Structure formats: structure tokens, C-alpha cells
Simulated scan of single mutants.
Amino acid sequence: MSETASFGYRDVEAAEKQGMVRAVFSNVASKYDLMNDAMSAGAHRLWKDQFVGRVKPRRDERILDMAGGTGDVAFRLARHGAHVTVSDINPEMLAVGVERAKKKGLEGLIWSEQNAEELSFGERDFDAYTIAFGIRNVTHIDKALREAHRVLKFGGRFFCLEFSTTTWPGFSDVYDVYSHRLVPKLGKRLADDEDSYRYLIESIRRFPPMPEFERMIREAGFVQTKVEPILGGLVAIHSGWKI
């Protein structure tokens, strides 16, 4: 039997998922940041600030920001003096990021089209690896985690910001109604794309729970793993070290 992978609530041929996800982000690239503000009421900015605060970027260290597309996390990292390589599988997302960097007057960022499962970088190239709201879209999450481990130096750190499942009673029910009913309508109104945002919400529901994802990070070779839930686990910061 052929291998399958989740694409929202559907199971598709694993070989097809990458192209399907790429099409989603090609469609939403120009409105991606606007939709993030609309969907989270701007809270994603605070989550990213908290995320970068946990990374503790240092001057002159090398950081790979995977699935970094429009540059939101990379810009925050670069302000601390880190040398940031922004990587994404989607060239349209990277193009938006490059244009945003120009408007902000930010120079020195490296923009690189990359597949998280098969990075072209050498072993032990980076001091830190970050990925925000991107790993759930990867076909083989275990491969992406192993690649993250491979490209990190000894003593390097891994940080992932990703949606999960909130454990707060009542709040989870409210969020389910909001995400499934209202977010696709926001996508239709603001980005003229209801289907892509329906997929993005469904992909959150199919992502492994926090304990399971932490286990996957350990199995990739990381130690001292940690999970920091935000809003009861609606969002979580996962971290680990390569030693």
C-alpha cells in the first residue's frame, strides 16, 4: 500500500502533500500577515516576541529560521545581531519576506528556498534552529526534526512555535467554533480564499498533541526537551538541545 499523509482532515498520497501545501501558501502569501493579525487579533505578534525571547539570539551567531517565509521571526532575531538564514519551501512566501525586509531597511538576511526534510546545508552549520507555525505542514515531521538536529552545532538549540490543543475547559469549545466557522469566512473576505484557511485550521487539529510532539523531538536526538504552553496549549513553544 502507498504511504499517506494528512492534508487537513483528508488523507492524501504522501508524495502529493508537499505540492498541495505549496499551493496553499502560494495562494495566501500576499495576505498571510494580514490574515495572521485578523485570525489572532494581533496575538501572534506577542507569541513571536515570547518565542524569540526564549531563543535568546546572540550577536554573530548563526540561526536558521525554517518556514520563515515572510520574515516575522527572522526580523526579530536579526535585531539582536544574529546572522539569520530565512528558509522556506515556498518562493512566493520568501518574495514577500524579501520585500518586507527592504521596506524595513533590514540588510544581511540570507533568503534560501529549502525543503525542511532535505536541507542543503552542511552538518553543524548553525547555532540555533527556529520554526514558527510551519512544522505541521511538513509531510514527514520526523525527517524535518532529524534535519534540524543534523545542521545544528553541538550545543545548538532547537525552538518550535506551533499551534496545539488547549486544555482550558470551555475555551477549547469556543475556539473550535471560532476556528472552524469564522476563520474560513475571514479567509474568504480578506484573502478571497476560504479553502486554504480551512486547511490551515484542519491541519492544527491533525497535529500531534504536545506530549507526543515532545517525544518526537527527543527521538530526533534532542535532549533537555521542554514544552511551554500558551493559553492552555492553544499555542506551545517546544525546545531541545543538541549535545
Score class of each variant (00 low, 15 high):
190 L>P: 06
104 K>S: 13
69 G>L: 11
148 A>E: 04
218 R>E: 15
195 D>H: 09
166 T>P: 08
145 L>W: 08
81 G>Y: 09
212 E>N: 01
212 E>V: 13
218 R>W: 07
102 K>Y: 10
31 K>T: 08
186 L>E: 09
58 R>A: 13
102 K>F: 06
33 D>C: 11
227 V>S: 12
54 R>S: 05
186 L>H: 02
205 R>C: 07
171 F>Y: 15
101 A>H: 13
52 V>N: 04
93 M>D: 03
38 A>N: 05
44 H>F: 08
5 A>F: 03
125 D>A: 11
18 Q>M: 02
36 N>D: 11
202 E>K: 07
70 T>E: 00
72 D>W: 07
134 G>A: 12
65 D>C: 05
216 M>I: 01
225 T>H: 02
185 K>F: 04
117 E>A: 05
142 D>F: 05
199 Y>G: 11
84 V>W: 06
14 A>C: 03
162 E>G: 03
21 V>F: 12
210 M>K: 04
129 Y>P: 02
6 S>C: 08
172 S>F: 11
59 R>M: 07
12 V>K: 02
207 F>K: 05
142 D>S: 15
181 R>T: 01
219 E>Y: 09
66 M>Q: 14
219 E>F: 12
207 F>V: 10
160 C>A: 12
143 K>C: 09
120 S>W: 06
243 I>H: 05
204 I>Q: 13
230 I>P: 06
157 R>H: 15
108 G>A: 07
11 D>P: 00
5 A>P: 10
41 A>D: 07
219 E>I: 11
52 V>W: 05
188 K>P: 02
185 K>E: 02
10 R>L: 10
58 R>S: 14
116 A>T: 02
52 V>S: 07
53 G>W: 03
35 M>D: 08
81 G>C: 11
68 G>F: 11
63 I>K: 04
57 P>Q: 08
60 D>F: 12
158 F>N: 02
98 V>W: 13
196 S>Q: 11
126 F>H: 04
121 F>P: 01
18 Q>K: 15
124 R>F: 00
241 W>G: 00
70 T>P: 09
17 K>Y: 02
76 R>T: 02
164 S>L: 09
30 S>I: 00
85 T>I: 03
161 L>W: 08
164 S>W: 05
71 G>V: 12
18 Q>H: 10
95 A>L: 10
170 G>P: 11
165 T>K: 13
102 K>S: 15
90 N>T: 15
130 T>L: 03
15 A>I: 03
164 S>M: 10
7 F>R: 01
131 I>G: 06
210 M>G: 09
181 R>I: 01
172 S>T: 14
43 A>W: 04
223 V>Q: 13
60 D>K: 14
223 V>D: 10
151 V>R: 11
7 F>K: 00
118 E>K: 14
155 G>K: 11
70 T>K: 08
128 A>P: 02
206 R>T: 14
68 G>K: 10
130 T>M: 08
115 N>A: 06
152 L>Y: 07
199 Y>W: 09
221 G>F: 06
202 E>L: 11
95 A>C: 04
74 A>W: 01
